[in-house]
């Protein structure tokens, strides 16, 4: 998922005796694994939390076009360029249906966009890191989309119907993205010395930021019991991070690259790798706006919105004129 540190609205999980009848019925529905649909009654805090979470996810898809767009005009072959174009187009499509899912909760796409642009809403920290060589297009697909899938697969079963259905569609495309990313890495890792260097460099830079995508460790995380009770969060951050590490380390070995975590070690007893946590102070610095690309990414989105204002105004004006002419003719 591209949402981290989503603050759950409300005061925490209520005991059944403190719930209203409506709240009890709502929770029972979720516990029966039934979907909540837009017109159903829902607690205000559930609605507010979902808007934050889906909105952040949508923003991430949109901002996420930028680091990949950075290499579109420099793709090394026509085929690579075509694949990257298709992928970036998918991301924009994901943004679109996530915004639509969010709109079913009573907030407009324009309102959400304004909150992204003025910094009130966040997007995933990963997109505040630069893409510095071509292997980054491989590593982004492999690691970044890979980490996203870890979170999105369980979210296909989330309690909110429109979000769940958006996830089903998104997951299909993301797994294609991850495979194409890994395909680039295989080519690079088996290529010339320079290409192998690019592949290792991309892995070195993106490994820890990818681990950060799951959000802080449970120990440091704002409590998320309520989101889990509502089934808008299915697993803990640490569970998913562990799963990601366990899946990725053998892939690194297969590529013949070196894991940037020098202390990575298989732990027979737990049946998973022991790994080094990312530097959480860096994570919080990036969230605060001090990542390498925060300013550039937001400036690019703000410029796109501002420079496009005349286009949006004109499209609306034309649609109104057309409707007026039709009314006169009728």
């Amino acid at each position: 998922m591209y949402a981290q540190m989503v603050k759950t609205a409300g005061t925490g999980v209520k005991k059944p005796k403190d719930m209203t009848a409506e709240e009890k019925a709502f929770q029972a529905k979720i516990d029966r694994n039934e979907k909540i649909e837009p017109k159903d009654w829902m607690p205000d805090d559930y609605r507010a939390t979902l808007i934050r979470q889906i909105g952040q996810h949508a923003h991430s898809e949109i901002v996420g076009q930028l680091p990949e767009g950075n290499w579109l005009t420099r793709a090394p072959t026509l085929e690579r360029k075509a694949i990257l174009l298709a992928k970036v187009q998918d991301e924009a499509g994901h943004g679109l249906y996530l915004y639509s899912a969010c709109e079913t909760l009573g907030v407009s796409r324009d309102e959400l966009t304004e909150m992204l642009l003025n910094g009130k809403m966040k997007y995933s920290s990963i997109f505040n890191y630069p893409t510095l060589n071509w292997a980054d297009m491989g590593a982004v697909g492999w690691l970044v989309d890979g980490a996203a899938i870890m979170n999105q697969v369980p979210l296909q079963r989330t309690s909110y119907g429109p979000y769940s259905r958006a996830m089903v569609r998104i997951c299909k495309e993301e797994s294609f993205h991850q495979r194409q990313g890994y395909a680039i890495m295989m080519k690079m890792a088996a290529g010339t010395a320079d290409q192998k260097r690019m592949a290792q460099d991309a892995l070195d830079r993106l490994w820890f930021p990818s681990l950060m995508m799951f959000g802080p460790s449970n120990k440091e995380s704002v409590h998320s019991e309520q989101s889990m009770a509502w089934r808008i969060k299915i697993n803990t951050n640490d569970e998913l991070r562990q799963k990601f590490v366990d899946q990725t380390v053998p892939q690194i070995e297969f590529l013949g690259l070196t894991c940037p975590d020098k202390d990575i070690k298989w732990n027979e007893e737990k049946g998973g790798y022991d790994y080094t946590d990312p530097d959480w102070s860096e994570f919080f610095a990036v969230l605060k706006g001090n990542g390498p690309c925060n300013k550039d990414r937001l400036a690019a989105r703000n410029a796109a919105w501002k420079n496009g204002a005349w286009v949006r105004d004109a499209m609306l004006a034309h649609a109104r004129k057309k409707a007026a002419r039709k009314a006169v003719a009728a």
């Binding site: 949109i62 901002v63 076009q65 930028l66 990949e68 767009g69 579109l72 005009t73 026509l78 085929e79 360029k81 075509a82 174009l85 298709a86 970036v88 187009q89 924009a92 499509g93 943004g95 679109l96 915004y99 690019a300 989105r301 410029a303 796109a304 919105w305 420079n307 496009g308 204002a309 286009v311 949006r312």
Partner: peptide, 29 residues
């Protein structure tokens, strides 16, 4: 057209521009 990626006035246009660029690359091949 691909220079536009991520900078279009609305998401629908970003998608349409990428789609057009993609068609043209296919024809180029």
């Amino acid at each position: 057209i691909s220079e536009w990626c991520g900078h279009a006035p609305v998401i629908e246009e970003d998608i349409a521009l990428a789609n057009t660029a993609l068609d043209l690359i296919g024809q180029t091949q």
